[in-house]
Structures are given as structure tokens and as C-alpha cells.
Design a protein around this nucleic acid. Structure first.
Length: 458
RNA sequence: GGCCGAGUGGCAGAGUGGCCAUGCAGCGGAUUGCAAAUCCGCGUACGUCGGUUCGAUUCCGGCCUCGGCCUCCA
């Protein structure tokens, strides 16, 4: 059992060794809850869910935290626009998010900390940064002083001069250094705010994650994950403030970042407007197919999303569920996941390779008989459990597909019975006519040894 | 401009210094009353120009194209 993970910090694959094998810690940046999430937002959730499943196999206790950012200017704007309280926005979308991610078969994280429930911890961390001369107060703001941390820039691989040269925003006049970032900012009376030693205000974005990590996971965590775009500035800043608040102790040992989902080769983003929401996709496709599609490319590679992506994923899953279905009578013995699948995932979460192995198992299962059939079926299910797929009864998969098409099952059954009668009478022309009627209902039938089965056509 | 990543067959997408990826679609065959499902087989795939090598899609260099980050962003 040797897990290798690509570490953004070192820019290479490294053997994973936790600080404490009895308590493995992992933190992934979650959503700011002000709107429905798009399919790109779901990628890290699904990717790190696979990692969580893999770690949970090998370590007795894995603490996985995924935060909810529920204080943010965009939330304030959304509340104002809808003329509703802030919490009406955050509670609604946090619930929607949780439900949607569950539909994608993502296990609930161990902890889902909310930013607003950790204000005292943030104030405490900011105070420590002030005491250590890593931060200063200016015009009601508290800012992290970047030059106070020599290691700044190591995660994103940026030199300070480049950052200053490339800065595309106006530098606030109260900053001692252009790279300094906000830990605490003042709130006007109409905005959410908390009392602090620096007046009524609210936290900056970066300090939220660091404080929640400290509160729930400890000063040094094993794995910190998120989308590629968070490397700079968010994770670079987290790394700086977290390290400085802990007297130089390492903040996170393995930094992992998933690549982007693109739409026509362009980043999917709310500001560009080329987004597809998870909510919309779930109207037409099973969550499991969305999950399969998200895992069909290696997590660090870009993945171009199109209608075809999800259609292909759906068909592939139908083939796999078909293999399980025809093995229906074989008792599913308990099985360890096949070594090849495990090996692929332990090589920096190579999900496409794992999927290729799964396809091979399905092919073997389709041909197997007797004990081999039971064993292969169990292997397929065990392999699927690592990826978070193939865990429902095949029947449920195919019925759900039919359910999305609003098919009259009674009518289909009636026609199948009529066709069976015609076939028995060797009236094949009549049988074929009935099959055309069935096809017209959007149903495909299969004559099998144990009778005629039907499923929804695409 | 700085930093980073990518270019593989009709599509998606792994991987490798010489031999099958895998899936979807297509074609041919087996099977079937006919289908469907399944199985078997098929298709001069590795952006481009050089270099190293007995041999490069894989290593090295140049070039072209595309994308990401540079304080909103998964």
C-alpha cells in the first residue's frame, strides 16, 4: 500500500506518509454559497471524494473537512438584490450544495465548518499574527505583511517582483507593501459584521480557511486540496498566514490541485457566463453519469465538457450495469477491489486507468460462468465502490433511466405479453409489428433466456 | 511581460524508448426467427521541424497552436 500523490509544492509525485497514521487530515476548499454551483465546481468534490475513499481504506481515521464560506461580498450582494436576509441566501444554497453533491455520490465530509461559526478563532489567529509582527492595522483593516514571510511565493512559484509587475489592481494606499492582503476589514452598518479589537468588521477570505483548519484539524495538516485557480493567491496566502501563526510549523504537507473544466476549450466560469449548473444537468442525467464523466480524465488534466461527454459516460455505465445485471443470480461474494484498480488509483488518482481496468473486468464478467462469475461480479462492485459508482442494483439504474423518460410501464408490459403470444404462435410478422409499437414508446427490448427485458432507449 | 499546463485515431482519454490502453461511435463476423444485449475482429493515432538512438508518440532543442494564473473564481 503505497500511495503517491502529486504535490504542487514540490512539483512532483511523492510517496504519501501522514504525520499521524492514526489520524489523517485533509481539507478541501468548499463553495461560497450564493448561487447554484456549476459542473466545474463539482470536479474537486468528486476528485477528493475518491481520495477520501482511498485513504479511508488504508487508514482507520481520516478527517476530511470541506468548508462552507457563508460570509462574502457576493453573498451580501445577492441578499441585497433579493431583498432577503443574508442567511436566507447562505442556508438555501448550502443545503442545495449538500444535496447535489450527495447526488453525485460524494460522501459527506467528516466536518463541514461554516466561516461564520469561527469568527472568534479568526480573531485569535489575526491577533497572533499582529503579535508576531506579521500583520499590522491600518484604517480599520488588518493586513498580512507579506515581506515578513520569507517563504512567500513558493507554492505558486512566483517571484515577488513578478507579482508587483503583473498587479492589475490599484494598490490600496494604506498597504505597506503592494502584496499585503486583508485579514480583517471594516463593515458598514448595513453589512454583516462582528465586534473585534479593531472595530466592527468581517474577515478576509483567506483567514477563514486557515482558522477552520487550525480549529478542526490542527497546525499541520496532511492534504490540502482545491481547484487550480486557488493556488494563487488563496493558497499562497493561507500558507503564509498559517505558517506564521504557528511559529513556522509546516501548514500543509501535500498540496493538491485539480485542473479545470472547460467549455469549448475555455475555462467554465461564472464571470464568463459559459456555465452549466449541476442542477440543470441533474434534470436530464443521473448523478452517477456526471460523476463518471468528471472522473474520466485525470484530475490534473483539463477536461472539456460537452453534451457528448455525459452521453458517453451514461452509455458506458449502462454497459457496466448490464454486465452486473446479467450476472444477477450470481451471489455477490465480498471482494477486495482488484489490485490493478487499486494500483491505478494509488498512482496519483489515475481514474482513467482504473476505469479501463473496470471495463476489462466487465468484459470478463460477461463471459464468465459459475464461481468466476460471482467473483468477477464482486470485484466489479468493489472496484466501483472506490470510484463511488456501480453501487445501486442494476435494475434501479435502468429503471431510473426509464423514469426520466416518462414511460408507461404497464403499457409496455402489455405489449411485451402480446408479442410473446405472437412469437409463441410463430407469428413473427405480428411480433415485429408489436416491437415497432414498443420502440415508438421509446423502449428497447431484449429477449433473454429468462424472458423479455425492457429498458428506455436513448 | 512573468509563471504554469496542454496538443494522441471520428469523439473522450490513459500510457509507453521497440509489443493490447480503455470507453463511445462506425464497419465486418458469431449468436438470434428478426432484433437487442453480448462476444470476436477491423481502422497507416500520437501538433511541427530538427537532434540523440539500432529504433521516438515517448528523451533533448527550436517552432506553431491552445488554455490557466498574475490579488472575484473549483
Amino acid at each position: 500500500m503505497s500511495l503517491h500523490l502529486y504535490n504542487t509544492l514540490s512539483r512532483r509525485k511523492e510517496l504519501f506518509t501522514p504525520v499521524d497514521p492514526a489520524r489523517v487530515t485533509m481539507y478541501v476548499c468548499g463553495p461560497t454559497v450564493y448561487n447554484y454551483v456549476h459542473i466545474g465546481n463539482a470536479r474537486p468534490v468528486v476528485v477528493f471524494d475518491v481520495l477520501y475513499r482511498l485513504l479511508s481504506r488504508d487508514y482507520a481515521k481520516v478527517i476530511y473537512a470541506r468548508n462552507i464560506t457563508d460570509v462574502d461580498d457576493k453573498i451580501n450582494a445577492a441578499a441585497k438584490a433579493g431583498d432577503v436576509p443574508i442567511t436566507a441566501i447562505t442556508e438555501k444554497f448550502a443545503t442545495v450544495y449538500r444535496d447535489e453533491m450527495a447526488t453525485l455520490n460524494a460522501l459527506p465530509p467528516t466536518i463541514e465548518p461554516h466561516a461564520t461559526q469561527h469568527i472568534p478563532q479568526m480573531i485569535s489567529m489575526i491577533q497572533r499574527l499582529l503579535d508576531g509582527k506579521h500583520a499590522y492595522e491600518a484604517e480599520g483593516h488588518v493586513l498580512f505583511h507579506v515581506p515578513s514571510f520569507a517563504g512567500y511565493g513558493q507554492l505558486s512559484g512566483r517571484a515577488r517582483d513578478d507579482m508587483i509587475a503583473g498587479a492589475r489592481v490599484e494598490v490600496a494606499p494604506y498597504k505597506k507593501d503592494p502584496a499585503d492582503f486583508v485579514l480583517w476589514k471594516p463593515s458598514t452598518p448595513d453589512l454583516p459584521g462582528w465586534d473585534s479589537p479593531w472595530g466592527r468588521g468581517r474577515p478576509g477570505w483567506h483567514i477563514e480557511c486557515s482558522s477552520m483548519i487550525e480549529a478542526h484539524l490542527g497546525p499541520t495538516i496532511d492534504i490540502h486540496g482545491g481547484g487550480h485557480d486557488l493556488i494563487f493567491p488563496h493558497h499562497e496566502n493561507e500558507l503564509a498566514q498559517g505558517t506564521c501563526a504557528h511559529g513556522g510549523a509546516p501548514y500543509a504537507r501535500y498540496w493538491m490541485h485539480n485542473g479545470f473544466l472547460t467549455m469549448n476549450k475555455e475555462k467554465m466560469s461564472k464571470s464568463i457566463g459559459n456555465i452549466v449548473t449541476v442542477r440543470e444537468l441533474l434534470r436530464h442525467h443521473p448523478g452517477e453519469a456526471i460523476r463518471w464523466a468528471l472522473l474520466s480524465a485525470h484530475y490534473r488534466q483539463p477536461l472539456d465538457w460537452s453534451d457528448d461527454t455525459i452521453v458517453q459516460a451514461n452509455r458506458t455505465l449502462s454497459r457496466l450495469y448490464g454486465a452486473l445485471e446479467q450476472a444477477g443470480d450470481a451471489p455477490a461474494t465480498l471482494s477486495e477491489p482488484p489490485a490493478a484498480v487499486l494500483e491505478a488509483l494509488r498512482d496519483d488518482l489515475n481514474t482513467p486507468r482504473a476505469m479501463a481496468e473496470i471495463s476489462n473486468i466487465a468484459g470478463a464478467l460477461n463471459q464468465a460462468t459459475g464461481a468466476a462469475k460471482a467473483e468477477l461480479k464482486a470485484q466489479l462492485i468493489a472496484a466501483g465502490s472506490l470510484l463511488g459508482v456501480l453501487q445501486q442494483p442494476p435494475k434501479a439504474w435502468f429503471e431510473a433511466a426509464a423514469g426520466r423518460k416518462t414511460i408507461d410501464a404497464d403499457e409496455v408490459e402489455r405489449l411485451i405479453a402480446a408479442r410473446a403470444a405472437a412469437r409463441k404462435a410463430r407469428d413473427f410478422a405480428g411480433a415485429d409489428r408489436i416491437r415497432d409499437e414498443i420502440a415508438a414508446l421509446g423502449v428497447v427490448i431484449e429477449d433473454r433466456a429468462d424472458g423479455t427485458k425492457w429498458r428506455a432507449a436513448e
